[in-house]
Amino acid sequence: MRQMEKAVFVKLRHRVQVKPDDVILVGDVAQIIASDKQMLQQLKRIPLYRIQRSDKNIVIVDVMKVVDAIVRFDPSLEIQTIGSAQTIVEVVYPKRTISFAYFLAVWLLLFIGSAIAIINFHEDVSMQETHQHLYTIITGKKADKPLLFQIPYSIGLGLGMIIFFNHVFRKRINEEPSPLEVEMFNYQQSLDQYVILHENKESMKQIDDR
């Protein structure tokens, strides 16, 4: 019974956003369960780390650091950690607003780029000949510019891309994410994995040859 009262359960959050010059508290990065409510509040208020300018925008808080802080607070506590071993602390600097011109430039780049890409594709696969041939197959007549086929084709091209990225079928019956969302998630996951290993000074030990 005595043992139970001293147990503290700690689970680190995956990703936390803070402002520059904030002090990270234990309660910011971890969810804590303890039977003593008053002690719980005190534990949550233990400072862990002050964000410095040199940290740039990512700080990794290791679970050992949290355990260390709690043990310092009260060595008799029995700490149980659950879940991931690091929290990614993202320092959010005041957002520099993206100028509209910058956005427009990217938009035009993509627009022109994809227009040229489709022209190249058509040229590459002799699409014109294929369409002329198809016109003959269907109607039995010849046409130099089978626009009757080609205009719906062009509209369908855009439609197909939109369908693939799921912006027509907005009403999702279940909560399946679109491929774009999955792709963004996977990429973020890889980035997180990278910074956890590379920004965390505790995760690697190297020979100090200085």
């Binding site: 109607t139 009757l148 086929f149 080609q150 369908g156 197909g160 369908i163 693939f164």
Partner: peptide, 24 residues
């Protein structure tokens, strides 16, 4: 040659466009 109405080309064009669009 199927010798059918040329207006069959409209749905055909649309469908093939959607297909290529999805590939892209």
């Amino acid at each position: 040659a199927l010798d059918i109405s040329k207006y069959w080309l409209i749905p055909l064009g649309l469908f093939s466009g959607v297909f290529i669009g999805m590939l892209a």
